[in-house]
Amino acid sequence: MKSILTVIAICTIVISCNKKNINTTKEAFNLYGRGNELLIKNYQTFEKNILKSYDSINVFYGDKQLFCYNEKENNVGIFRSCGLYFSQSHSFDTIAITNHNDKCIIPFFLSKKTQLVNEKEFNIKGVNYKIFHYSEQIDSHKSFDSYYLKDRGFICYYNFDTDKYIFSNEVPKLLKDYIISDRDFFARYTMAKLFPNYYRVKSKKNSLW
């Protein structure tokens, strides 16, 4: 808890010092179940403060602010900070990124290990959307998959253990439908091919994890 409060304090200081030049956007994520049914609308909300050299992101569960983190991107990959210093969290090639910092909050900071699985472009009404699919390892027994829209940010987190996912409701519906139904790209199907007899422990209805 102390580390979370420290991160929030740092983010607050950074934001307050730059508030005159901040462009703020909000992005809500809905929680979906095994049949793609909507379980909770606006399950999580990301409030992004776009600063000069990085974005400061506040994460809310309902109306409660949980924590914040900083993120930036270059041609190599994605970098995040759990305080004052940035570490690479995701690569745009197949290099695995290993993290030894245990003070970060999963899945929004650094997992223990992330690796690009594949990437794909979807054309929606003449617009191309490039999506990166990552495998993110929490520990030796738990992992999840994430989907990143190039030049925008993460739009989906999928947990194979529960067969639930959160998806940005700011993304075009057709793009969402294409991704979650793509049997060669969405982890629900690709993981099922690898583990056809996987046994799932019953999870809470209102939880991704």
Rank of each mutant, 00 (worst) to 15 (best):
S91Y: 04
Y147K: 07
R80A: 07
T24Y: 00
S146F: 03
N123D: 13
L194D: 04
N118V: 05
K176Q: 15
N123M: 09
I4L: 15
Y147H: 10
I155E: 07
F46T: 03
K72F: 12
A96T: 11
L38Y: 07
T114D: 03
H90E: 11
S56M: 13
E37P: 03
V127W: 00
K150I: 07
F144P: 00
N70W: 00
N23H: 11
K103V: 14
F79L: 06
F60Q: 03
S168F: 08
K2C: 06
K150F: 14
F46A: 12
H133P: 00
Y178M: 12
K150V: 00
F29G: 06
K120A: 11
Y199H: 14
K202C: 05
F185Q: 06
T98W: 01
A187I: 02
N118R: 10
N23G: 01
V201C: 04
K120L: 07
R188W: 03
F29N: 04
F160V: 02
K112S: 07
R188H: 10
G62T: 01
E119G: 01
I95C: 10
L208A: 05
C68L: 05
L39A: 05
V76Q: 12
G126T: 04
K205I: 11
K103L: 15
F108P: 00
S207W: 00
C82S: 15
K125W: 03
I180S: 06
G153F: 02
I106D: 03
I13S: 13
F195K: 15
F144I: 13
V127M: 12
N159Y: 11
R183S: 07
A96N: 08
S16D: 12
D163I: 08
L194T: 13
T162G: 06
S81N: 05
H141C: 09
E170H: 09
K202F: 05
N70L: 13
E136S: 14
K48C: 13
S89G: 15
N42H: 10
T45E: 07
K193E: 15
P107K: 03
I15V: 13
N169T: 09
S207T: 08
I131S: 02
K202G: 04
Y178G: 00
K205N: 10
I13R: 11
P172S: 04
I155S: 09
I50E: 09
Q44P: 00
D184G: 05
D163P: 00
M1P: 10
F154Y: 12
R183K: 15
K52Y: 05
P107A: 09
G83N: 14
Y199G: 01
Y69V: 03
K150A: 12
L31W: 09
D184F: 08
F122Y: 15
Y69H: 10
V59S: 02
I40S: 03
D161P: 00
Y129D: 02
R188Q: 14
T12H: 08
N42G: 08
Y54G: 04
T25A: 09
N74R: 08
N58W: 09
A187M: 11
S3W: 05
I97K: 05
F167K: 02
I4T: 15
F46W: 12
N128Q: 13
T24R: 13
N23W: 02
Y148N: 07
N18E: 15
Q137S: 10
L208D: 02
K48D: 03
S87K: 12
Q115D: 03
